[in-house]
C-alpha cells in the first residue's frame, strides 16, 4: 500500500475549512442542550408525576436510540408532517443545519440532564437542611447551595459529554452538511485516499478533544479549590 504522508499534511488545511461549521454545530447545540437539560432535570426532580414522567420518557427515548436515527427522523421525517411545514419551525427544519442543531440538542439534552441530576442527588442532604434551618427559602437553597455544588460534582461527566457531542457533530455530514467530516468525504471521493484523509481528520479531532479536556481540567481545579487542603 502506498501511504502518502504529504497528503495528510496538505489535506489538513482543506479540512479546517469545515471547522467553523463544526464549532457552530458543537457550541450551539451544547448551549441549547444545556438549557434543555436543566429544564428536564428540574422536571425530573420536581416530584410531580406530570412533570417527571414526560421527562423520563423523553430521556429514555433519546438515550435509548442511535443519534444517527434521530438525525434521519428529524431530517427526512419531520418535513413530511404538514403541520410542521406550516409552523414557524419550518424555517429551521427546512435547512439541514437547523435539523443538525435540533438533533444534537435534543440528544445531548437527554444525556446532560441525567448528569446534572446525578450532581444534584450527590449534594449531601444535610447541607440543604442546614440552609432550611436558617430560614433560607427552597428556591434560594437550590440557587446558592445545591446548584453550585451539583455543578462541581457534574463537571467531570459533563466534560465527557461535551467531547462526545463534538464527535457526534461529524454525523451531520450524512445530511449534506459540509462540516470537517463532510469535507473529508468529498476529498476522499476525489483522491481515493481514505486512509490519509481520515487520519488527518482524526488528528484534528484529537487536538480538539485534548484542548477541551485541558480547559475542563482547569475549570475543575478552579471550582474545587475549596476542597484542596
Amino acid at each position: 500500500m502506498n501511504f502518502d504522508f504529504a497528503l495528510i499534511m496538505t489535506s489538513i488545511p482543506q479540512l479546517l475549512e469545515g471547522i467553523g461549521l463544526t464549532f457552530q454545530l458543537w457550541f450551539l447545540s451544547a448551549i441549547l442542550g444545556l438549557l434543555l437539560a436543566i429544564a428536564l432535570m428540574l422536571m425530573r426532580i420536581s416530584g410531580k408525576w406530570f412533570l417527571y414522567v414526560p421527562a423520563m420518557v423523553y430521556i429514555y427515548i433519546f438515550r435509548g436510540t442511535p443519534i444517527l436515527v434521530q438525525i434521519f427522523i428529524i431530517y427526512y421525517g419531520l418535513p413530511q408532517v404538514e403541520f410542521i411545514r406550516e409552523s414557524f419551525m419550518w424555517s429551521i427544519l427546512r435547512e439541514p443545519f437547523g435539523c443538525g442543531i435540533l438533533a444534537l440538542t435534543l440528544n445531548t439534552g437527554a444525556y446532560v440532564s441525567e448528569i446534572l441530576r446525578g450532581g444534584v442527588l450527590g449534594v449531601p442532604k444535610g447541607l440543604g437542611e442546614a440552609a432550611a434551618a436558617l430560614g433560607i427559602s427552597k428556591v434560594q437553597r437550590f440557587i446558592y447551595i445545591t446548584a453550585p455544588l451539583a455543578i462541581r460534582l457534574s463537571l467531570p461527566a459533563y466534560s465527557n459529554d461535551v467531547i462526545s457531542l463534538m464527535k457526534s457533530t461529524a454525523l451531520v455530514s450524512t445530511i449534506t452538511l459540509l462540516d470537517m467530516m463532510g469535507i473529508a468525504r468529498i476529498i476522499v471521493s476525489e483522491t481515493y485516499a481514505p486512509y490519509e484523509i481520515f487520519i488527518s481528520l482524526m488528528i484534528i479531532y484529537l487536538i480538539l478533544t485534548w484542548t477541551t479536556q485541558k480547559i475542563f481540567a482547569l475549570l475543575e481545579r478552579r471550582m474545587n479549590r475549596h476542597t484542596i487542603q
Binding site: 449531601p124 444535610g126 447541607l127 437542611e129 442546614a130 440552609a131 432550611a132 434551618a133 436558617l134 430560614g135 433560607i136 427559602s137 447551595i145 453550585p148 455544588l149 462541581r152 475549596h226 476542597t227
Partner: peptide
C-alpha cells in the same frame, strides 16, 4: 415555615457547613 425557622437555630452532628463558601 421559613419565618419560624429564622427564630430557631440548629446545629448538626456533622456541622453541615457549606463547603464551597
Amino acid at each position: 415555615i421559613d419565618a419560624v425557622r429564622r427564630e430557631v437555630g440548629m446545629v448538626f452532628q456533622n456541622f453541615n457547613l457549606f463547603p464551597h463558601l
